[in-house]
Design a protein around this nucleic acid. Structure first.
Lengths: 192, 192
DNA sequence: AGAAAAAAAGGACATTTGTCCCAAGGTGAA
DNA sequence: TTCACCTTGGGACAAATGTCCTTTTTTTCT
């Protein structure tokens, strides 16, 4: 549920040490919005440490969380290919350490470094693979089942993530999430 | 809503004429399942003509349609990178003409042909960009609004696609879709 | 430490959507 | 051509979820 990609970090740190390409480091406090939907940016980020959420806000101000990004996940990369505005906002949940590449550097790496090229390609493919079953499941099963599924993927779920974010990830209201959590709790107790 | 990518077709046809790489052609009748979820395949397909649906079937037999594929869209490509089983079934809706590459050929093209590499990269990025707002919209708006949105993207919607497929794309039952269509019709009439 | 703001929890009711039916019209295969 | 089988359309009711609002608890800021 909180996605990671250790290979990508390891390779990026090697590149950075190597010094041939310019790769910067940044640190953000929790609740910092790094990318804002519908704006234009010139950098690609890779998470070194921490968790961020990537989400779309609609006209009514509702957030829909696309994914939670953990170590080794990149963001801002889609705009290297499409030259368009960012579709998702990205906001840190915990303290966040990232590396950043300018579009120019990122393009150079894609063209000149086949390992990097392959890492990016696989990351994009994995993103697609990951999302398909998730949305399918969300539509087909009630909220309680979705919570159980998330808890099995990420046991610390309710300790680390605010209720609002969990609800926005599943695509329901906080009220409904609470109702479902209560339902699960009473089911667990009746088993004793 | 029915996605296309003319550039990819044009380039593939050029490659095929050129003859350096082995690219095959196939034709499928409507309702032919070309890829079946959870199986392993060794080819990547590119649609030359026609429409196919790409969908996940859950344990209860419910279909959830990921996307409708039109000219220039590829499928089976994710498995080149992850070496895993296919997550989606792909079934033709109309007559379907496709080109196919073996994984081996596809990998060779990715490595040796930077234009091809870039086309694939951009296709993956577009797939991600495309899906994000769609799922967000689906969760946030009632069925009627979703139908209106789809009709504006693809006016022939209800003529070409079976009701069941439209419902499975929006992620609702046929019953609910019919109710919404009826609601829209009566609203249109009351405007006269 | 104390005030203000945000997050969590939940009651009451409305609305949406699903489930389970059944019936009519079309389509295809023997 | 006839029969089986889809597809479409919809009635009646049940279940899930949303909306609106209030209260309590926790966090944040000064």
């Amino acid at each position: 549920m909180i996605r990671t990609n250790q290979n990508f970090i390891t390779y990026t740190e090697m590149l950075k040490k190597n010094g041939q390409y310019e790769i910067d480091s940044h640190v953000f406090k929790p609740k910092t919005t790094v990318l804002r939907q519908d704006k234009r940016y010139g950098d690609v980020y890779l998470i070194k440490e921490g968790i961020a959420k990537c989400y779309i806000t609609d006209e009514n101000g509702r957030e829909f969380i696309q994914e939670f990004l953990g170590e080794g996940m990149e963001f801002g990369e889609l705009e290297v290919f499409s030259e368009k505005l960012t579709i998702c906002s990205v906001t840190s949940i915990t303290d966040l350490k990232v590396y950043s590449f300018s579009h120019k550097t990122y393009r150079a790496l894609l063209a000149e470094d086949s390992t990097f090229n392959h890492l990016v390609m696989k990351a994009l493919a994995d993103k697609i693979r990951y999302k398909a079953p998730r949305h399918s499941f969300q539509h087909s099963y009630p909220i309680e089942d979705n919570i159980l599924r998330l808890q099995s993927l990420f046991p610390q779920l309710t300790e680390i993530l605010p209720k609002k974010d969990i609800a926005n990830y599943i695509g329901v209201t906080t009220r409904s999430l609470n109702r479902a959590l209560k339902g699960l709790k009473s089911k667990q107790e009746s088993l004793k």
